[in-house]
Nucleic acid binder design. Structure first.
Length: 262
DNA sequence: GATGACCTGTGA
DNA sequence: TCACAGGTCATC
């Protein structure tokens, strides 16, 4: 299930292969999938005849600009979505989700005048398509996270530090796996109240977030973290051999080392 | 802020 | 059959 690294791969795929191709038709078989009042008719009207001019991303949200003053096309991958351009998907197959290609999983699509296609495939239907989203409902993208900003959002909350890191309004892009990995690397207990971190811990966490994003992006996705091998019942910490804890923190299944994450 | 709801597929 | 899944939203 995609986090910001998978969204970035999808963005890059669109940027590389789907721009400047006139849209001949818009495929909207699943009206439920269109959000914020968007209808199939309105989507067709807004996109047909235009080209995609730029593919951006903020957190997990993929934002595609369109030509001639057209709308911003916003794609969200939800828990199981993938973008396909001319039938090809970017990146590794998803964990926890089917990677088959059943035609009925295509929830939205564009057919270009040259015969090519862009599809959003999403078995679980947790993704979304909308036009002109309010981009500022998201915090700054996690790639742009600064230490002072992180210090500020942590100091302002008594919620578990993991919940704050995953709050898309505060920081956009970190999901369950990336957050667990960053806290694992930083040696910080995910359940710690955010405002209990001292400045040294904030600095360590900031570095861990940056290292996690860079390293896992290079390795190929959110599922390539060091702690992933220990993400199962009875596992031990790959760093020190201590038992891994499995809990719910911030509403999500959380694995952490009971020894080095304090 | 924690909880349940949304929806569907997979694997034990 | 059940538990579980990399997300987000409304609700108490």
């Amino acid at each position: 299930m995609p986090e910001m690294l998978e969204a970035e791969e999808a963005r890059a795929l669109i940027a590389a292969r789907a721009l400047d191709r006139p849209v001949a038709s818009v495929f909207t078989p699943d009206a439920w999938y269109l959000k914020r009042g968007l209808t199939p008719a309105a989507a067709k009207r807004a996109l047909k005849g235009r080209t995609l001019t730029e593919a951006r991303r903020r957190g997990k949200q993929i934002l595609v600009d369109t030509s001639d003053g057209g709308p911003v096309l916003a794609l969200h991958l939800g828990m199981s979505g993938r973008v396909l351009v001319d039938g090809d998907a970017a990146g590794d197959p998803l964990l926890y989700a089917s990677n088959r290609d059943a035609p009925e999983w295509r929830r939205f699509g564009l057919t270009f005048a040259d015969g090519g296609t862009l599809f959003l495939r999403d078995p679980r239907r947790f993704g979304a398509v909308e036009l002109d989203p309010d981009e500022d409902r998201l915090g700054p993208d996690a790639f742009d996270l600064t230490k002072p900003y992180l210090a500020g959002v942590l100091a302002g909350s008594r919620a578990p530090v993991k919940a704050v890191l995953m709050d898309q309004h505060r920081i956009a892009g970190l999901g369950n796996l990336l957050t667990d990995e960053a806290l694992f690397r930083a040696g910080i207990d995910p359940a710690r109240p955010a405002d209990s971190l001292d400045p040294a811990e904030v600095a360590t966490l900031h570095r861990a977030v940056r290292t996690t994003l860079r390293t896992l992006q290079r390795r190929g996705g959110s599922h390539t973290g060091d702690h992933m091998v220990a993400r199962e019942p009875g596992a031990v910490c790959p760093r020190d051999g201590a038992p891994m804890l499995r809990r719910t923190v911030g509403g999500r299944t959380t694995f952490s080392c009971g020894l080095h994450q304090t």
